[in-house]
Nucleic acid binder design. Structure first.
Ligand code: MN
Ligand code: MN
Ligand code: MN
Ligand code: MN
Lengths: 136, 136
DNA sequence: CATAATCCGTAGCCATTGCTACATTTGGTG
DNA sequence: CACCAAATGTAGCAATGGCTACGGATTATG
């Protein structure tokens, strides 16, 4: 009885934990993408990208700096640390697989882009491997 | 230029919006399930189910009552409104499809249960339809 | 039916992520 | 170089969802 409930609580705990990493994952991915595309990444670029105010971005950048994922000086562009770059590459690869998977499954591109943005953070290594197999 | 960034901000806005509904969805599903299984749903049942304190549950139940999804009197079991029941059935069906889909894809049951608990909330109607097609 | 165990509510704390309003810095232009 | 516009930071508010500590209500048990 109690084991049943305990076992069922694992998915929820895991989901909360994944949501806690989600902001960091989306931010490092966005920073990497912007630096690739336009050479630098400003706070306002991120604000427009995520459709939030620059204040929200500014605070989150500060926190991710404390977590050693990003660095920047006041009024300066945002850059990735080695740790942030490593995470960004992993996250981007996972995201691309999830997106390609949804499209291969028959979802139109626009909806695949929307859904993959949320789904990516809940895809564990086993599910990711299954998606890769499906793509081959 | 700006349209490109604007277009990319849509998935993030949608993901935030889906996260805002996630608690309500998981709660009505849990309440329905518990009433089916043991006749009633208590605050402490939900606390054990989600692996959070009874205080967290209590506050969320109050909010979902304001949203007309649940009802309960102090120190009494929690029940679903008609609106809550309708939502619960939809959410449960979607969750079951996502879970079955992952298993069919080759993910082991334990990981499918974990990942589907998060993925379910990011599956739009188009992706859900694609999963249904895959299952047939 | 009295008492203890269990359940639940309230107070109050923290972290996160949204926001507006205002201050400051930076960089381009006259 | 002085000034203005744009970018960024800061102050402070709200909602949400975690928590512990404590107190009141309900239920079980002897
Ligand atoms: Mn994402
Ligand atoms: Mn999510
Ligand atoms: Mn669910
Ligand atoms: Mn869920």
């Amino acid at each position: 009885m109690k084991d049943k409930i305990k076992a069922r609580s694992v998915p929820f705990s895991q989901t909360r934990s994944r949501h806690a990493s989600e902001t960091a994952e989306d931010y490092v991915e966005a920073v990497m993408e912007m630096i690739e595309e336009k050479g630098e990444c400003r706070v306002l670029d991120l604000a427009r990208y995520f459709n939030v105010s620059h204040v929200t971005v500014s605070r989150i950048v500060k926190r991710l700096q404390d977590e050693k994922l990003l660095y920047s000086k006041p009024y300066r562009p945002v850059a990735l640390t080695a740790k942030g770059f490593k995470l960004a590459k992993q996250v981007k690869e996972r995201h691309e697989i999830v997106l390609a998977f949804l499209i291969e499954l028959g979802v139109d591109k626009a909806n695949a882009q929307i859904d993959s943005e949320g789904i990516e953070h809940h895809v564990g290594s086993k599910t990711l491997a299954a998606m890769k197999r499906f793509l081959k």
